[in-house]
Nucleic acid binder design. Structure first.
Lengths: 352, 352
DNA sequence: CTGAAAGCGCTTACAG
DNA sequence: CTGAAAGCGCTTACAG
């Protein structure tokens, strides 16, 4: 869109440049540049005159010209497979919040599939804009983007809990899902359940030790000497949880189900209800996320609260440090997840 | 961030310019510009050479330089009060989808409050980037932004259903909430309920006839000769619906409640449950939105499906037409909402 | 402390 | 059909 040359009477139009300000203040455009960049070596009186002219003319620096001339784009773009899932949306919110505080613009680009061409194209477009990249690598498209991202582009990723401590310099942020899954499972075990079944979100870690949410669950089971059932992958949505849940409800031995996210738990709850099984009387259900509505479900959902907004903020902070001060990257987990016990989990049937 | 001058061995670095391509192809950078812009007057053989050079060097046009030189930024930024509410997130998804298809970048800026300074600041920052604006004006911050937006900046807004047909040239997109609310209310009335109570989301229309969702509800009631209870404003969240719901449940005359969105309905459902009232046996509840989990609640929620993604796509299409072809703006509603009857609504108690 | 010059990577007229 | 020149609105050294 044309942003130059059409100053309407209304005024809010961009068109006043650094040169206009310079003329009005009786200095060179150079000096105006120094003032807007907070350069120290400007006489106080000069600075004041320039600032007055800026205020009067309503000058705003062109982000475009600044980016081109300086080689630094004050922007990040987040690549994500989805904007409507609670976790993804909350991360975006966190990024935006932190970016705004630092006067960075935030772009968004959604990854439609994990087709390499699609992902590469998204990466290219995000890179074209200049600025850094934040990847939400919780799913296949995101992980693919992480693998395909070009060298040299500043980048931070929100990832699943890594199996092993990542190499220093890996620009990763995560929550400690393994511990969280273990605790949730232990909670269920302590309630007298013989074992805990697991409805998994799709795993993204093909090779290196598997998903840590799954690992934490398995660990708790193993420690307790419980049978470890086959985890069932259910996707991300309530519909997925429902479909997988219907199969699980056919097995009377199932008395406790841990779900990879709250949406899955909602589907599971529904499947249980249709099968005539009481929650938590017959079956206990726990989720992951603590989405805003989870506390208001009936039964209110026991779930692991994950600080997605914090993950978003941390991603931005890391990236910002990287591009502004050239900070060394240290991969790090963000705030520990916390188990919120509500109504959907209870004593195993016949355990008392 | 620095995007120039550091071509790592890995290659994916930006640094090859139009001039590099020109040299490689043995033409002027001018001609390269023509080729990448699809200008017709380039000899086929020349074009091929240039295209080969582009492919070989991995050239990508700098969006920044293009924007500065041409005065057109191929980008839109969406201003919204929230990214986690389903409706807002789905609109964003729709915008992104359409923008991607048109090779536009999409930025996002969240409006923290309706404080004019905050809103003006967000508007300024969004404008600095160049490109057009899409406002989600479903709430006070968004409506404030609509009022405060500078003239001359290309802009489209997703708005509540206007009370009167807007002036030609108003860059607005909406769903027909009035009809939708009327139909949902009629559905409840047809079930034998004496009247329908209304849990409202905050209205943004101060002056011009009030919220159309409310108006549609009122209209249905009036036509049926039913008592019109005072609508109760409940915010946007499940917590808000719950709080307002608790008050409503104290009134035994309440047998049907229409909620301004599904989150409110979830809170209402919870309040009813705690009060020991059956749904739909004692009280019927209907929502607005048809969020993905609404079909899986117990009871599954009767609700009005709103095509938020379609709204997002329409917003972009309008804006795109405006900035690219200078299309005249025609304000228009998007796909008609549809009532989805599920389990949470049923015959009035004692009506049969 | 401040200004004149050159340049960021493109596009836009203007010539030919 | 193609090239040389000027310019978009800034910043970055370089002088003084």
């Amino acid at each position: 869109m044309r942003v130059t040359g059409n100053t309407r009477g209304s005024g809010a139009q961009r068109s006043v440049s650094i040169r206009d300000v310079a003329t009005a203040a009786g200095v060179s455009h150079q000096t105006v540049s120094r003032v807007i960049n907070g350069h120290p070596s400007v006489r106080a009186s000069t600075r004041e005159r320039v600032e007055a002219a800026i205020a009067e003319l309503g000058f705003r620096r062109s982000a475009t010209a600044h980016a081109l001339a300086s080689g630094r784009t004050r922007a990040v773009t987040v690549l994500t497979a989805n904007t409507t899932h609670y976790g993804h949306a909350a991360i975006l919110q966190g990024v935006e919040e932190a970016a705004r505080a630092a006067s960075f613009a935030v772009g968004i680009s959604v990854l439609d599939s994990d087709d390499p061409r699609v992902v590469r194209d998204a990466l290219d477009r995000a890179t074209d804009a200049g600025g850094g990249l934040i990847l939400i690598a919780y799913d296949r498209p995101g992980v693919r983007a992480l693998h395909l991202a070009p060298e040299g582009v500043p980048l931070v990723a929100a990832v699943e809990t890594p199996a092993a401590p990542p190499a220093a310099g890996s620009p990763w942020v995560w929550t400690d899902d393994r511990t969280a899954a273990r605790e949730a499972t232990e909670h269920l075990l302590a309630l007298g359940h013989r074992t805990v079944h697991y409805l998994a979100i799709p795993s993204t870690t093909d090779s290196d030790g598997g998903a840590q949410r799954t690992a934490g669950w398995r660990e708790a089971l193993t420690r307790a000497g419980a049978v470890v059932p086959e985890p069932v992958e259910a996707g991300w949505t309530p519909a997925g949880g429902y479909a997988a849940g219907r199969r699980l409800t056919e097995d009377p031995a199932v008395t406790a189900v841990l779900c990879g996210n709250d949406d899955l738990a909602i589907g599971m709850l529904r499947a249980l209800r249709e099968a005539g099984r009481e929650v938590p009387g017959d079956v206990s259900v726990a989720g992951f996320d603590d989405a805003p509505h989870s506390a208001f479900l009936t039964p209110a959902l026991t779930t692991v609260r994950l600080d997605f907004t914090g993950v978003g903020r941390a991603c931005f902070a890391l990236l910002h440090g990287l591009v502004e001060q050239g900070d060394p990257i240290s991969p790090h987990p963000v705030a520990t997840p916390r188990l919120i016990v509500r109504e959907s989990t209870g004593p195993a049937p016949g355990s008392r």
